[in-house]
Simulated scan of single mutants.
Amino acid sequence: MFTHVLNNPVGQIVGDWFLAGSGILPAWTMSGPMDRDLIFNEQLERCGVSYFDFYLLHSLEDGNNYDTYVKYDCFRWGMQKKEEGKIRHFGFSFHGTPELLEQVLNEHLEIDFVQIQLNYADWNNQVVHSGRLYEILHQRNIPIIVMEPVKGGMLANLQPELEEMLKAVHPDASTASWALRFVGSLEGVVTILSGMSTEEQMRDNLQTFGDFQPLTKEEYQVIEKVVKKMQDMSLVPCTSCRYCCDGCPSKILIPDIFHALNTARLYPTDNRPRMFYNNLTSNSSVKASDCIACGQCESVCPQHLPIIELLQEAVSRLE
């Protein structure tokens, strides 16, 4: 499941990639090409700098955001700013599908880095695709900046039985340190962004990376067991055979909605499942609430799932 172990501690590979100053261009604040410079110049002025070490097109994803960046020629604009010396490294943060990432990288070979959500819980998550996104970037030797290594704090506050599995191996290690070491043990990761809200959390992170120890094979196996336990917790056992889709009169993408629902069940405070659902339903123009309860899907489901009931849950959680 997890196969990439870093040979060099993360502190040795950061080097020039230390985030001394960074900025972002948000698609949703632009109404035309002229807004690129207006936003950028205001950011420089507010930060009191003449250039940014790192500058990102913010939150590329399938649909509106990526379309906006293409429409307003933001990739070429970013390279112009780099030529002017106002941006040292130009890239983007990404929240889309692996297919979109491949497309963007094929079309924009000039990209210096990509920022993705990456943690052990999302490695095989069919909404976030952390593992697949990592593999795409690593195969292309594109430097990776990691966001959400502790999944918004969720991996620092595991369910008691999961925390006990980690404590059995390292009684004095925090659960957050396991998540950080997982990300830090991956080749090609140059910077890890960890949101900290207390001095204790900062001290724990400093201790984790001050004497960084890549995960061992045995520790990977422990994490795999933790993830399996997490995935076994009240999830919809849909196998994505898609038999339910063929005869659905409303053309609802049932398995895809269940992927989002499962993630919402595991992480009720995470907004990503709703983002995925919104993109999915906006592209297909069909929502879970369009179910007419005809029962055709349930009659062909090999897993005998109560699909109508589950779609109603998706409506309450995701719409």
Rank of each mutant, 00 (worst) to 15 (best):
N141F: 07
F182R: 09
R76Y: 13
E161P: 01
V150S: 05
L38Y: 15
D62V: 05
Q80A: 11
A173N: 10
H304C: 15
Q115C: 10
Q221P: 11
G131W: 00
G152E: 03
Q80V: 03
P237R: 06
A121F: 09
S177F: 10
R317E: 15
V70I: 00
V104G: 04
P26W: 08
V286S: 14
P149H: 09
L109K: 04
E61R: 01
L109R: 05
R274G: 02
L25N: 11
A260D: 00
K225I: 04
Y51R: 14
A293S: 14
N125H: 14
P273V: 11
S93F: 01
G91R: 00
L186A: 13
F258W: 07
Q207W: 09
I307S: 08
Y120S: 07
H58M: 15
R203Y: 02
T175M: 13
K229H: 05
G15D: 11
L38G: 13
N41C: 04
M30S: 15
Q139E: 02
H95C: 02
F94W: 09
N141K: 00
C297P: 13
E135N: 07
D232T: 09
L133V: 04
T3R: 13
V127L: 11
Q296H: 00
V146T: 05
F75I: 00
H170P: 03
R274H: 12
D53Q: 15
D35T: 14
L109C: 01
C74E: 12
I142T: 15
S316W: 14
I307R: 12
S31L: 09
N262I: 14
E161H: 11
N7Y: 15
D256P: 06
D53P: 14
I24N: 04
D73Y: 01
K167F: 06
C241N: 08
D73G: 05
G153N: 15
L318V: 06
L155H: 11
